[in-house]
Amino acid sequence: MAQMTMIQAITDAMRTELKNDENVLVFGEDVGQNGGVFRATEGLQKEFGEERVFDTPLAESGIGGMSIGLALQGFRPVPEIQFFGFVFETMDAISGQMARYRYRSGGTRTMPITVRSPFGGGVHTPELHADSLEGLMAQQPGLKVVIPSNPYDAKGLLIQSIRDNDPVIFLEHMKLYRSFREEVPEEEYTIDLGKAEVKREGKDVTLIAYGAMVHTALKAADELEENGISAEIIDLRTVAPIDYETIMESVKKTNRAVVLQEAQKVAGVAANVVSEIQEKAILHLEAPVLRVTAPDTVYPFSQAETVWLPNHNDVVEKVNQVMNF
């Protein structure tokens, strides 16, 4: 088995599907010759040719619209939005168009498009590169939103996303791209969309997270364990639709929960998770469900981002609050 970083696992997933299905097309700004600004498509144009892996003009709305047109011709497009902050330029193509095509056509047309995009804070980018905008996507009916937290999941989830017949927004946290390696099978495998994973079992409190915050939760859990608090960690992996079954099962066991997201408090998906827990499991709760989020400002200038981003100390603090409620 190979050791891969998350970016290598992502490339590997695209390579797998380019091989499996001749309808798969990979394209975007700098995606062809250059292999993408993060090298996510490294070597793919050379291997599969310019008809299947190619550069586009610099226009995100055009990329979105072109993806739809190609899907109408039976292709399975995998466009890249170079940084997810640029998604505002193509909001109509995504939320106004591809998310609605199946519905609009009375179920007669499908949009098997996987929009891949790097996002996430902590890597000192200029403005509109690091924003966590998954909440915008997750509240659009018709879209699925996938956010892997590790190389193994990234490969299995991306293959499954490309095979999915509905549009998927696949968000790749930039900080995770090369932060660690792990064993990733070279052969193909898939992970179902909409299924969370219990990353660590515990009995006192449930930490619900996704993307890079899964690692923040793990770090906090180590510290909590030293203080005798056993935290269970759920990695959502898909934030639309959310696997509430796994969440409820855990909360009914631990009776306490803290939801983590890198996004601002009004954004993201944590609010949905909290609402659903109180609707479905209030009698199991020993304390209010708290959130660890960023504050409600625009994503900060990079000099302030380390303080702005939620960290493991914030998690420990919130867990102590629910434990001592």
Binding site: G62, M66, S67, Q73
Partner: peptide
């Protein structure tokens, strides 16, 4: 065909995509 587009202009980038797809096919 697809049903009439309500968002003015959204069909234009999609038409480019369909036309690119036809060329590929």
């Amino acid at each position: 065909a697809v049903s009439p587009q309500i968002i003015i202009g959204a069909q234009i980038t999609q038409a480019a995509g369909v036309g690119i797809g036809m060329k590929k096919r």
